[in-house]
Simulated assay, not measured.
Amino acid sequence: MSKKKAKITALEGAEMTSEGLSYKGVILQPIVEKCEGCERAVPFEDQKYCPSYAQPESKWKHGVCNFATHVRASVDKEGKVKVNPLKASKRAARGR
Rank of each mutant, 00 (worst) to 15 (best):
F67T: 02
S74Y: 05
N66W: 03
P43M: 01
K59V: 13
K87F: 07
W60C: 06
G63P: 12
H70V: 03
V83N: 12
C50Y: 01
K87L: 11
S58Q: 13
Q47S: 04
P43L: 01
A73M: 10
T69E: 06
N84K: 10
E45H: 05
E78W: 02
S74H: 04
L86G: 12
E78C: 07
S58P: 15
A68D: 03
A73H: 06
H70L: 04
W60P: 14
K82H: 05
P51I: 00
E78L: 08
C65I: 13
G63V: 01
K48R: 04
V75N: 11
A88C: 08
E45K: 09
T69Y: 02
K87N: 11
N84F: 05
Y49I: 08
S89K: 04
D46L: 07
S58E: 15
S52I: 07
K87R: 13
E57F: 08
S58L: 15
C65M: 04
K61M: 15
V83W: 10
V64P: 11
L86M: 08
K87T: 09
R72C: 02
K59S: 15
P85D: 06
K87W: 05
W60N: 11
A88T: 12
K61T: 14
H62M: 07
A68W: 05
H70F: 03
A54K: 03
L86I: 11
P85R: 01
H70T: 05
V71R: 15
G79R: 02
P43Q: 00
F67P: 09
G79I: 01
P43I: 00
P56T: 06
S74D: 15
F44G: 00
A88H: 13
P56K: 05
H62V: 13
G79A: 04
V64E: 10
A54D: 12
K48V: 11
P43W: 00
S58Y: 12
C65F: 02
V81T: 05
V83C: 09
N84S: 09
H70G: 06
W60K: 05
S89R: 01
E45Q: 08
D76F: 00
V71C: 07
S58N: 15
A88F: 12
V64T: 12
A68R: 10
S89G: 11
F44P: 03
K48L: 06
H62S: 11
L86Q: 09
P85N: 05
P85I: 03
A54G: 08
S58K: 14
A88N: 13
V81S: 02
C50I: 07
H70P: 15
K61Y: 14
V71P: 13
T69I: 03
S52K: 11
F67G: 08
P51L: 00
K59M: 14
Y49T: 11
Q55V: 15
V83F: 06
K82Q: 07
K80I: 11
D46W: 01
H62I: 14
F44K: 00
A73D: 15
H62F: 12
V75Y: 09
